[in-house]
Amino acid sequence: MKIDSEKLKYLSDLSKLDVINDKKMIEELETFISYMEILNNVDTEEVDILLHTSEYGNVLREDTESEKDSDVLGNSNLKDGEFIIVPKTV
Protein backbone atom coordinates (compact mmCIF):
# COMPACT_ATOMS: atom_id res chain seq x y z
CA MET A 1 0.00 0.00 0.00
CA LYS A 2 1.42 3.33 -1.11
CA ILE A 3 0.97 6.32 1.17
CA ASP A 4 1.63 9.50 -0.79
CA SER A 5 1.50 13.10 0.44
CA GLU A 6 -2.13 13.40 -0.59
CA LYS A 7 -3.13 10.28 1.38
CA LEU A 8 -1.16 11.53 4.37
CA LYS A 9 -2.98 14.85 4.25
CA TYR A 10 -6.32 13.03 4.02
CA LEU A 11 -5.52 10.91 7.11
CA SER A 12 -4.13 13.93 8.90
CA ASP A 13 -7.33 15.92 8.29
CA LEU A 14 -9.51 13.05 9.48
CA SER A 15 -7.35 12.76 12.61
CA LYS A 16 -7.44 16.52 13.25
CA LEU A 17 -3.66 16.58 13.11
CA ASP A 18 -1.27 18.69 11.13
CA VAL A 19 1.04 16.04 9.72
CA ILE A 20 2.00 17.22 6.25
CA ASN A 21 4.89 16.03 4.07
CA ASP A 22 6.45 14.11 6.93
CA LYS A 23 8.74 11.64 5.14
CA LYS A 24 9.49 9.60 8.23
CA MET A 25 5.79 9.22 9.00
CA ILE A 26 5.02 8.21 5.39
CA GLU A 27 7.79 5.63 5.40
CA GLU A 28 6.84 4.12 8.75
CA LEU A 29 3.11 3.99 7.97
CA GLU A 30 3.84 2.40 4.60
CA THR A 31 6.13 -0.23 6.13
CA PHE A 32 3.61 -1.23 8.74
CA ILE A 33 0.56 -1.15 6.47
CA SER A 34 2.42 -3.34 3.97
CA TYR A 35 3.32 -5.72 6.78
CA MET A 36 -0.35 -5.92 7.82
CA GLU A 37 -1.22 -7.23 4.36
CA ILE A 38 -0.04 -10.65 5.52
CA LEU A 39 -3.61 -11.03 6.81
CA ASN A 40 -4.78 -11.36 3.21
CA ASN A 41 -3.22 -14.85 3.20
CA VAL A 42 -6.10 -16.10 5.32
CA ASP A 43 -9.55 -16.75 3.96
CA THR A 44 -11.92 -15.29 6.55
CA GLU A 45 -15.11 -15.21 4.53
CA GLU A 46 -16.85 -17.74 6.77
CA VAL A 47 -15.48 -16.33 10.04
CA ASP A 48 -17.47 -14.00 12.29
CA ILE A 49 -15.93 -10.86 13.72
CA LEU A 50 -15.02 -11.01 17.41
CA LEU A 51 -15.25 -7.68 19.22
CA HIS A 52 -14.99 -8.80 22.83
CA THR A 53 -13.79 -12.06 24.31
CA SER A 54 -16.49 -11.95 27.02
CA GLU A 55 -20.16 -11.12 26.84
CA TYR A 56 -21.26 -7.75 28.21
CA GLY A 57 -24.65 -6.21 28.65
CA ASN A 58 -25.63 -2.63 29.33
CA VAL A 59 -24.81 -1.37 32.80
CA LEU A 60 -27.37 1.10 34.00
CA ARG A 61 -27.36 3.20 37.13
CA GLU A 62 -29.10 6.28 38.43
CA ASP A 63 -27.55 9.62 37.53
CA THR A 64 -26.02 11.17 40.60
CA GLU A 65 -23.99 14.33 41.00
CA SER A 66 -20.54 13.22 42.11
CA GLU A 67 -18.45 16.19 41.08
CA LYS A 68 -18.93 19.91 41.25
CA ASP A 69 -19.03 21.97 38.03
CA SER A 70 -16.00 23.89 39.25
CA ASP A 71 -14.03 20.60 39.51
CA VAL A 72 -15.10 19.45 36.09
CA LEU A 73 -14.29 22.79 34.46
CA GLY A 74 -11.14 23.22 36.51
CA ASN A 75 -8.87 21.86 33.81
CA SER A 76 -10.09 24.02 30.94
CA ASN A 77 -7.94 26.89 29.73
CA LEU A 78 -10.82 28.45 27.84
CA LYS A 79 -13.36 29.02 30.58
CA ASP A 80 -15.21 32.12 31.58
CA GLY A 81 -17.18 31.46 34.75
CA GLU A 82 -19.37 28.47 34.06
CA PHE A 83 -18.79 28.62 30.32
CA ILE A 84 -16.14 27.43 27.89
CA ILE A 85 -15.23 29.81 25.11
CA VAL A 86 -14.08 28.57 21.71
CA PRO A 87 -13.32 30.49 18.48
CA LYS A 88 -16.34 31.71 16.59
CA THR A 89 -17.86 28.89 14.56
CA VAL A 90 -20.44 30.70 12.42
Binding site: M36, L39, N40, V42, T44, V47, D48, I49, L50, L51, T53
Partner: peptide, 13 residues
Protein backbone atom coordinates in the same frame (compact mmCIF):
# COMPACT_ATOMS: atom_id res chain seq x y z
CA UNK B 1 -8.08 -4.16 7.63
CA UNK B 2 -10.21 -3.54 10.71
CA UNK B 3 -12.94 -6.12 10.19
CA UNK B 4 -10.42 -8.56 8.78
CA UNK B 5 -8.41 -8.24 12.01
CA UNK B 6 -11.54 -8.90 14.10
CA UNK B 7 -12.18 -12.07 12.10
CA UNK B 8 -8.59 -13.20 12.58
CA UNK B 9 -8.95 -12.49 16.29
CA UNK B 10 -11.74 -15.05 16.32
CA UNK B 11 -9.50 -17.61 14.59
CA UNK B 12 -6.68 -16.94 17.10
CA UNK B 13 -9.14 -17.29 19.99
Amino acid sequence: YYKKALRLKNIIK
